[in-house]
């Protein structure tokens, strides 16, 4: 490697690469809870979220990222959930959102 002081690095790509992402864990979650696939990302869950209104937690965004195989930080994010269950009352597609939180934590504990 060179000893040159460049003053800059090489930006890492922000692109989600679905050829490289491991979709396996997301599929396992879907297999256990197919209704998770019916999310239309309306954001009702996030609007009412006890944690999301006071922290950076965005349930809709994080669980959608998990669906794409982007697991980094998901477990830590889901730990912000207080499991109060309000999101499940709001969901127009009847998804057990509280269950989604618990499944993501269980499956992605290692990520």
């Amino acid at each position: 490697m060179s000893a040159i002081e460049w003053g800059y690095g090489i930006n890492a790509p922000r692109t989600m690469d679905l050829d490289r992402n491991d979709i396996g864990p997301a599929r396992e979650i879907l297999a256990e809870m197919p209704e998770w696939g019916a999310c239309i990302a309306c954001g009702g869950c996030t609007a009412t979220c006890t944690a999301g209104n006071l922290t950076s937690f965005n349930f809709r965004r994080v669980h959608t990222l998990v669906k794409r195989g982007e697991y980094a930080g998901a477990w830590a994010e889901m730990n912000k959930c207080m499991l109060c269950g309000k999101c499940r009352l709001v969901c127009p597609r009847g998804i057990n959102t509280r269950g989604v939180v618990r499944l993501i934590k269980r499956k992605l504990g290692d990520y």
Partner: peptide
């Protein structure tokens, strides 16, 4: 701008 070059070079690398 030197600080922005990481974006420039990343495009060429892509």
């Amino acid at each position: 701008v030197q600080a922005n070059r990481g974006f420039s070079i990343a495009n060429s690398r892509k």
